[in-house]
């Protein structure tokens, strides 16, 4: 029930922001960034593997979203559109950085490993990062140390100054919560 509820809330927020953007509300941009800026950055960062370029892509993605504001459907969740724009901007920047002639820029020159199911990969990144940001802080910290830091439960326990058992239970709760939050990911990708 919790997963469905969060998904519905996210869609309602996405539609509300789409409506404001389509109406030419310039204040909507800051709210869009606060809601999705980190997710846009993460999608771009996974494509580009460079923080500076990912920030450039993030900025461009929001500018392009604004440029497309008059064609935005105010009744539809804005997130898939923003995710698509982000992916395209990131691919364009990636191609530019590889110094390819610009007439060759298109989806076919997407970075290696990103050619197929491009939207699916980008959307999965978007949703996983969003789910991580919804975890309680102490669980998110364990996840970060484990996956990003490559630390064992014992090392995490030493770092945090808590018993290993506590780390294990936080880790399991966090992964369970993440799994439930993303339970309908495939279905959602198919529907977007």
């Amino acid at each position: 029930m919790r997963t469905v509820s969060i998904r519905n809330v996210a869609e309602v927020v996405g539609r509300e922001l789409a409506g404001r953007l389509a109406g030419g509300d310039t204040d909507a941009v800051r709210d869009l960034y606060r809601e999705y800026g980190k997710l846009v950055f993460t999608v771009a960062n996974r494509v580009l593997g460079d923080r500076g370029l990912a920030e450039e892509a993030t900025q461009q993605a929001f500018v392009k979203l604004w440029q497309a504001a008059t064609t935005v459907d105010a009744e539809r969740d804005i997130r898939p559109l923003l995710c698509t724009i982000t992916r395209r901007v990131a691919y364009d920047i990636s191609a530019r950085e590889r110094r390819r002639p610009w007439q060759e820029l298109n989806e076919a020159t997407a970075p290696a490993g990103h050619e197929g199911n491009g939207f699916e990969r980008a959307w999965t990144t978007w949703r996983v990062r969003d789910a991580l940001d919804r975890l309680p802080e102490e669980e998110a910290e364990v996840m970060r140390l484990q996956h990003h830091g490559g630390m064992t439960h014992t090392e995490i326990a030493d770092r945090l100054g808590v018993p290993v058992g506590t780390v294990k239970s936080r880790s399991h709760r966090a992964h369970g919560r993440l799994s439930r939050l993303l339970h309908d990911l495939r279905e959602e990708v198919a529907g977007t």
Partner: peptide, 12 residues
């Protein structure tokens, strides 16, 4: 996604 270090970076 979890295994990719880029997933964990924060923007400025």
């Amino acid at each position: 996604v979890l295994a990719d270090p880029a997933s964990w970076d924060e923007p400025d």
